[in-house]
Amino acid sequence: MSAPLVEVSTISRSYSMRSGMFGRATAVHAVDGVSLTIAKGETLGLVGESGSGKSTTGRIVLGLEPPDSGAVRFDAKPMAAPGTAAWRAQRARMQMIFQDPLGALDRRLPVATQIREPLDIHGHGTPAEREERVRELLRAVELTPAHGARYPGALSGGQRQRIVLARALATKPDFLVCDEPVSALDVSIQAQVVNLLCDLQAQLGLTLLFISHDLRVVRQISNVVAVMYLGRIVEIGSADDLFARPEHPYTQALVSASPAPGRRSAGRIVLAGDPPNPAARPQGCAFHPRCPRATARCASEVPALSAVGGDRQVACHLVTGAQTRDAA
């Protein structure tokens, strides 16, 4: 594995939330002690249900929001303080792509103008060079200058997401955080964008943090996958192996819940109970109220994320290493 580009150590972030008009403020632990590293040129996939803290992790990694505790290092240097020149230089090397391309674009401007915007802001090259770069970026995302002249409303969802991607690539970033970038797209269009992202990553040597609730898409694009549940990473490991042999009971349920053509639902693990609520996180292992294998210990003791063999790490009292892996 090459040197890490991104190193996240035990970041936490909580928000205070008031329930009802006179309700007491409660702390929502959106992210709680998350550590991960992403090697240069690799993709880390982050999966989990709604509210598990994926986007918050992404925003902290990008420096869009500070962690309450913990730290992020980018290219072996700590993140600079927001607003400083060092911060801007660092930020130009990282970009973010969101789920909703229409929301990310300005409806009143032709899309080529919006691709050029970051070049204008960072004062890259002469105006003519910027125009050429915009044409190059449109080509890179498999669109034409004619598409560039259009307004966002006149493009399809997949085309808009390509424009957002082109704009994110304008300043030649090293690192992209993609938050559900294809979730709003139809399967056939999703495949176009996933292929494009894979190609661009290979050509440009990009490092990606790829956030999605779609296990299939995440496996397709990631080297390493981390599974989050209520603000914590409960399992992390290499993508193919993790989905082939999930160890954590929650990952097992997630993989089993992913519908597959050619398989009937027989034998599926269906979890009882409601989706997790970050404002009322259970004691001990946060998954214990829904876990089919929970024991008394799980309700009181938080399992630590620990190595269980290979490159896999699991946070579960019952998964402790070699013997469980062989049994699987």
């Binding site: 997949g158 495949a191 996933v194 292929n195 898409v217 397709q220 993989v255």
Partner: peptide, 19 residues
Amino acid sequence: GALPPLDGPRRRLTAIPGT
């Protein structure tokens, strides 16, 4: 063909061109 597989070898997705 556009559906990424959840197991087995990864293959390039066969995207349908156009919209």
